[in-house]
Amino acid sequence: MEIYRAVVARVEPLTATMVRVVLTGGDLSKFASTGVGDEYVRLFFPHGPDRHDLSLPVATETSWETPEGSPTAPMRTYTIRAVRPEVNEIDIDFVLHDHGVAATWAAGTRPGDPLGFNSPTGLYDPPEDVTRQILVADQTGLPAVARLLENTPDHITTRVIVEVPDQASVQPLPAHPRAKVTWAYGGNGHGPSRLADLVTAALPEDSDLTGTYVWTAGETTALRTVRKHFRKTLSLPSSRFKVVGYWSPNADSWTERWEALPADVKAELEALWEDPKDDLEDVTIAYEDRLSGLGL
């Protein structure tokens, strides 16, 4: 694990609801990208009103820790849209809204503002025999969808479905000779997520999924239904799909409700992950079903 420091080079508006922050300098010359299209990092933000007052954690072998006596930097997870080592730049796209540490920072950031982040991790991992992929995401998944399209070989047929708040949030995606893109409107915190319906419409129960890989990202709670559809309805092996929860509605209250759970309930949930005998996707479904039953 490494912790990097960079500064904002410029800010580029993308749509009415997204902005691109281009990072440069600092430790970027040492940054090692995985090259995977949906690679993500933990961003460390200034901890107070001074935008230059950034207290970075110290890297450990597999994680990080805040030095004793230092303030804890607020942290959020974001996908890297692009890496340009030849000019020492990284692009990170932010969804703009009226609350939250990251969105507030992105809305007001200026060139020269510092930002920290850790080593990247990629999740997209199609089998070698893939001939078709289906990418479904809400607005938070747009940066990954765009980069995945850029990295997709020309012979792979690609179906892209993206849910954005409205037409003003649509943005150009990289061209691909065998890609079809559909935009849907709704969700994204402005109404109920349509991700589950979009997935089941694109992949009904009788779908022929030979050679297919499915990647889905967006609102975490909505994706619980998506995961069950892949495993229980379509009987997809875990190597044929990836479900990535990017955000949760009312995340702060969710954390408070989790912390309020009785100790024995927390222990029961955590025990599901200890030496699991089932496929990890099936364990995840059992875990998420239990969360849903608890109102989480």
Rank of each mutant, 00 (worst) to 15 (best):
L272F: 08
A260W: 03
G187A: 07
G191D: 12
A184Q: 11
K232T: 13
K242H: 14
T200D: 04
V265M: 11
A267M: 09
S239P: 06
E270V: 03
P276V: 02
D279Q: 08
S193H: 10
K232R: 13
F230I: 03
E274D: 15
E259D: 12
T182K: 03
Y246F: 15
S238K: 04
A267T: 09
A179Q: 11
T212S: 14
G218Y: 04
R224C: 07
G191S: 11
K232I: 06
D208P: 01
V265L: 02
R231M: 05
A179E: 14
D206C: 09
V265N: 06
R194T: 10
R194P: 11
G187F: 06
P276M: 04
W254H: 05
F230Q: 03
E256W: 07
D278H: 08
A267Y: 07
G189Y: 04
L280S: 13
W273V: 08
T220L: 13
T233S: 15
T255H: 10
V181T: 10
D275Q: 12
T182N: 09
L223T: 00
K228W: 09
H229R: 01
L234S: 05
A222W: 00
A267G: 15
H176R: 06
P262H: 04
P249C: 12
A201H: 15
L209E: 08
P237D: 04
K228R: 11
E270G: 11
L280D: 15
P204K: 05
E274C: 06
P204T: 07
P237R: 00
T221I: 12
G211M: 00
W258I: 10
P237H: 01
L269F: 13
H229S: 01
S238W: 08
L234P: 04
F241E: 05
L236R: 00
A217I: 03
T225P: 07
S239G: 06
D279C: 05
D208T: 08
A201E: 14
L236M: 15
R178Q: 15
